[in-house]
């Protein structure tokens, strides 16, 4: 749903999403890197478990929450990618009820 603008980018870094390697560039947010790489959504809604993606891109809407390097509830639109980052979707409360 997103694409990179311009050919010159920061140096390439590798991140892991749901166990799969993804190439990103230094200076990109985690959320942006994922959604430019074919990932369609970042989280499940808390009640309906429907897919959600960032709305605000500035830390307000909390639709970008991911587990990053073992920490839950990270606002991935505010966090820059780092080589080797391990990223997972969070389980929604709704999926388990």
């Amino acid at each position: 749903m997103l694409k990179r603008y311009g050919k010159s980018r920061g140096k390439t870094v590798s991140i892991w999403f749901e166990g799969q390697p993804i190439q990103a560039h230094e200076g990109e947010s985690v959320a942006a890197a994922l959604l430019t790489s074919g990932v369609k959504y970042l989280r499940h809604a808390q009640v309906s478990a429907k897919p959600r993606a960032p709305y605000c891109w500035m830390g307000v809407c909390y639709e970008c929450l991911l587990e990053i390097d073992g920490e839950q509830n990270q606002q991935s639109c505010l966090i820059a990618v780092k080589d080797g980052m391990r990223i997972f979707r969070q389980s929604s409360a709704a999926e388990n009820t």
Binding site: Q46, A93, A94, E95, N96
Partner: peptide, 10 residues
Amino acid sequence: QILVTERTKP
């Protein structure tokens, strides 16, 4: 005073 957390699985 009462605190409430995010939702989580049962």
